[in-house]
Structures are given as C-alpha cells and as structure tokens.
Design a protein around this nucleic acid. Structure first.
Lengths: 234, 234
DNA sequence: TGAAAGAGAGAGCACTGCTCTCGTTCCATC
DNA sequence: GATGGAACGAGAGCAGTGCTCTCTCTTTCA
C-alpha cells in the first residue's frame, strides 16, 4: 500500500496513467495496433504530444501496457467462466475456457490480435512484464487436464513420446510445472492449446469468409468437441 | 499473350512492376507489413516517391500485390510437396500439406503474418484478386479428404451435424464444392484446417516461448498425427 | 524557505502516405 | 512523318507520425 505516500501529484499521475491505458485501448479497438499513435492519445487526453512522454517512455511501452491489460482481462474472463463449472466436469471446464477465449476475442478483436496475431515488427514484449499474465489461460487448461488425469478421466497412451529429443522437452515441462500427467498428454495438451487459439483466430481474423456460416458459434461448439476428444477427455 | 502489343515502354513497365513486388517483399521480410513504406521501396528502386504512384495506386494496393504473391508461393510449395506423395497415401498427403505450410511459414514469417495473422487495420484484401490464390491450400486439403472418403479410408460418424443451422451450412459447402464426403467430415475438415494453421501460427509467431523446445519440428510431427486423427483418416 | 523534481508547452528533426504541378519522353493515329 | 495525348519522373507541399530538447511554471520535501 503506497496510498500512505499519496500526494495530490502522485494521485494525478496514477489517474493520468489509467487514462492513457483507457484511451490507448479505445484507439487500439478502432484503429488497430499498427495505427496506435501516441500523438492521438495525447490529443484525446488534452495534452501536447511531448507531455505524454512524462508517463510513457515510448510507443512500445504503451503497447506493453496494453498487452498486459489485455492478458489480464482475458485471464479474468476465463476465470469467471470457470467459476460456473463444476470442478469434476473436466470436459465442461475445457469447453468453458474455449468459449471464454472465443467470446473475449470476438469482443476485443484488436487486443486479441495484439496478443495472438502477427508480432508487431520491431517490438518484443518484455518477458518480465508479460510472462505471468500471458500464461494464465494455458495454466488453467493444464489444471483441467491434470485434474482429469488424477481423476482417471483421460484416455491416453502412456508410452514415451518419440523422438527422444521431444520426450526430454516434454519431461522437463512436466517437471517444471509439477505435473503427474504422462508425456503423451503434455504433447496433446500443447496441440489442443495451439489448435484452440487457431480456431478462435480463424474466426476473429475472418479466415472462414464472410458468408460461409450462419452462426460460427455452432461450428465452434463442434470444434470444442474435437479439441476435448484430442486430449482424450471423457 | 499480349506480347504482341509489347512496346519498349510496356516492357519497362512490367519490369518495374516486378521490381516493386520484389523490393516490397524484401521490405516485408525485414520490417514487416506495418512498416512497409512506399517511399522506401521507391528509394531502393532509384525513383522519387511520387513516381511509384504511376505503378501502384496506394500502399494498400502494394499490400494486395504482396498478398497475391504470397498465396501463390504458398500454393506452389504445397503443390510441390504433394507431387512427391502417392495419391493413395491419404495421411501422408495431409501431413505433407501441413509440413509444406509450416516450412513456408517459417521461411517467410512476414508474408505468412500478412496472410494469416492479424488483419491490417483499414485494409481489406479485395476478394476478386485474393480469393482464388487464397483457397489453394484448403482446396488441396479437401481433395485429400474426398479421395480418402471415396477410398473408404475415413472413419467418421455419418449422422447429420447439429444444430440444424450448422448442418445446412455444411450441406451447402458440400454441394458447392461437389463433395461426396458426409457433413461430419466437412466439419472435422474445417476444424483440422483451422487447427493446422493454429499450430503453424503458434510456432511462427513464437507463442511457445523461446527455450521451450529443442526442435519444434518434433512437436509439429506429433501435432500432424493429432490432426490426421481428428479427421478420422486411417 | 529554497533547491530539486515533476509537469506541460512548444519548436524542431526525420520520417510517412499521398497529391499536385511541371517539364520531358514515348507512341499511336491521322 | 508530323502531332496530340498519354505515360513518366522530379519536386514541392500537406498533414500526419515518433521522439528529443529546451523552456517555464508548479509541486514537493528537506
């Protein structure tokens, strides 16, 4: 709590920081990451462009703020969705995560694109700020699979994965995350993770084409079934 | 053949157009789509910026040229990969398509991002120019599944897909493409299509993290097995 | 109370996409 | 074969961008 050290100036500063992120998100939503302009944010803020550099060192740093903000919002959405599903309903929990990701991606396509679309050229999200919020979703997925495994609700080969090089990597991941699931399930989990976001991206980015599907949500439910099946949940 | 109507000027024009696309691709590869600058292309071409507007109406039109060029190169890569696989080896053909997409994506990440990553804000690829080259890969995939189905090499539910709204869409797609495969396989095909590109995007866009895997190609082979399985190929 | 730090304004640099005008060069048609 | 028109390249210019530097004024804290 540094409320104790709060002066009028420091409070004003925090408010301005919040405003910058808020306005930045609005611009991101309307114009996309490539067109995100510090000058335009400054204008909306009623400041001259140079003044915002008191708060944000560069355009890239603003992007980082928006990345962290986006990951957190997505993480919160997933957590909220999971709150309504029984812990023993593993397939239901996995589907809930998928639906939450899809719903958030469709609601915030620009932020979704910033997080999961093309990397912004010349910009690398600083790992120390984005790693933790950025792994919230996959952590939840892993939790579901681990729960399901321990409940005996996963049908999967238990043999080692080939080649040995991959098997070593999967074993290390297992160890680092403290999992009891077999290597095969780690591999299938990585597949389901990438495939889930592939399905969502395909829809958010409009790859299906405009008039192909009456309601893409119907197809997504079908995709979810395939994803649940791919990790062997029953 | 409009070689007959070829004048020195028209030939020079065609050469300049080719140069613009070539230099544009170089800039795309080094700086990404967002940083693609007509002025920089003009400089490399030895022209003043306004002169390139004689050839390309706008930055967006240059993007369209690069999109078409990219789709065609990817399509050629997939066709070349398929040429080496026996027509009756359906799983092998599907895997070959996947490997070709992955290899091309890793070799041309900027163009891959332009085609399959975040949409460029304010830019919509004109369907009449990009539709045909843009559907070459999925057409090949569909061919493989259709072949496999007709050879009795697919294990899939034959019942109608629910809900009825989705079933109607899938039936229409079946009809429009002249397929004999059941609706369930169309749905699974759409899943495999999106999931395949999800797996490739995850790798090209660096979502796995830098030091997670010794050779991501090993994991991709595992992903391919899951994809083949997801459409019921045997 | 006075020095230090924070905040905003404004000018400026190099860059962008794009438009307009101006001579020059080529080419098809009379 | 001359000629009018189209194509071409250059250059200036507009409005925008990220970012830096300097200047002034205000707040904070010792």
């Amino acid at each position: 709590m540094d409320d104790t050290a709060s002066t009028p100036r420091s409070r004003a500063r925090e408010q301005t920081m919040r405003d910058i992120v808020r306005i930045g998100r609005e611009h991101l939503a309307t114009d996309g990451a490539a067109a995100l302009s510090l000058r335009a944010v400054a204008r909306d803020l009623g400041l001259v462009s140079s003044a915002v550099y008191r708060y944000v060192a560069s355009r890239d740093e603003l992007l980082t703020l928006l990345v962290v903000d986006g990951y957190d919002e997505l993480g919160d959405a997933v957590d909220a969705a999971l709150a309504g599903v029984d812990r023993s309903d593993h397939a239901g929990r996995m589907a809930a995560i998928g639906r939450a990701v899809r719903a958030w991606g469709l609601a915030e396509p620009a932020t979704y694109a910033l997080l999961f679309g093309s990397p912004v050229p010349g910009y690398e999200a600083p790992a120390e700020q984005t790693n933790r919020p950025g792994t919230r979703v996959v952590e939840r997925l892993v939790e579901v699979w681990e729960d399901a495994w321990q409940a005996g609700a996963v049908r999967v080969d238990e043999g080692a994965v080939s080649p040995r090089r991959l098997s070593r990597d999967l074993a290390r991941i297992r160890r680092q995350m403290g999992l009891t699931v077999p290597e095969q399930l780690v591999a299938r989990g990585l597949f389901a993770w990438a495939a889930l976001f592939g399905c969502v991206s395909w829809e958010v980015f409009g790859q299906y084409g405009a008039d192909t599907l009456a309601d893409p949500g119907d197809l997504f439910e079908h995709h979810l079934a395939a994803l649940v099946e791919s990790v062997g949940l029953r």
